[in-house]
């Protein structure tokens, strides 16, 4: 079934990618523009990149975004993995109920999640004497991240041989050892996947942050939204370009390494098979 697509299919797929990357190209090109205009090109310059590294507001918003995304992704991964392990050993009915609640923040509109958390934070904040800020922002991010981690880890648990843990313990491992040395390596791909999804979602989130961060703390997305009322500084284009290129480079490196490894493995397999055939002919 490979590469039998008609020409029209290729054209369509190229058009979709053009559509997805057109505005990104505009952003990147205009981060090098000499003037502040976002439609008129007036010459190449690295002006905005220089300005960027002196702009306290943007840099602090960026560091808030990174801090909250890293912390939220890590905490959500720990809580979510533990939850998935617990859910997995439950009976069908309670598990089904909990997974339905787990689905709520994923399926629900972001704005409702944001608004409902804002009501909770303002309400309890008045009682306990705290206000919206970094803490509430972090809690909100963890809340919308965990469901994705749970759903990334659960399938790995289902694939697991249920006797594996017992076998380890029969051979003298403590439950803790059985968990770390036997279960963990099996679950790792799911956990890493969950971590990555959680981090990406946190970086990209605007709506929930907007309602839960208050007026003292701002993420990059909130800063950008505030700027859209007047005009977005090309400094933001510059920052996004740097981010985009970094992520692109990381993804390419990881993938080339993986592809290289699979190719090597294939070569080795082929060589082994050849040897096997020769051996058999003797």
């Amino acid at each position: 079934m490979q590469n039998k697509n008609p020409v029209i299919a290729k054209v369509l797929n190229v058009l979709v990618f053009l559509f997805l990357y057109l505005p990104i190209a505009v952003l990147i090109v205009f981060s090098f523009n000499d003037s502040k205009s976002r439609t008129v090109w007036s010459g190449f310059s690295l002006h905005w990149y220089q300005e960027l590294f002196q702009d306290e507001e943007i840099l602090s918003a960026f560091s808030t975004t990174l801090t909250v995304s890293v912390l939220a992704a890590l905490i959500a991964t720990v809580l979510g993995t533990a939850a998935a392990i617990g859910f997995h050993s439950m009976k069908r009915r309670p598990r089904h109920l909990l997974l339905t609640i787990n689905n709520i923040p994923m399926t629900n509109a972001d704005i409702i999640t944001g608004v409902s958390l804002m009501l909770l934070f303002v309400f309890t904040g008045n009682l306990l004497g705290f206000s919206l800020g970094f803490g509430t922002l972090l809690v909100a991010h963890i809340t919308f991240n965990i469901p994705y981690v749970v759903l990334a880890v659960l399938p790995k648990l289902r694939q697991l041989n249920p006797n594996l843990g017992e076998a380890a313990m029969d051979l003298g491992a403590t439950p803790w050892q059985a968990f770390w040395k036997v279960l963990m390596p099996e679950l790792r791909p799911g956990i890493l996947n969950g971590l990555l999804i959680a981090f990406t979602l946190s970086i990209d989130d605007f709506v929930i942050s907007y309602f839960t961060a208050g007026s003292e703390v701002a993420t990059l997305a909130m800063q950008i939204y505030a700027m859209t009322r007047k005009r977005i500084s090309p400094e933001v284009n510059a920052l996004s370009t740097i981010l985009f290129i970094t992520v692109l480079a990381l993804l390419l490196i990881v993938n080339f390494r993986e592809m290289h490894q699979t190719k090597q493995a294939e070569k080795r397999n082929k060589a082994l098979q050849k040897d096997g055939v020769k051996g058999g002919a003797k």
Partner: peptide, 21 residues
């Protein structure tokens, strides 16, 4: 990968770029 990649550029910013277009 390339379908997911745009998510790394903030959606407000990408939408703002559509304004220029």
């Amino acid at each position: 990968l390339f379908i997911m990649l745009p998510m790394w550029m903030n959606f407000l910013l990408r939408t703002y770029a559509w304004m220029s277009i």
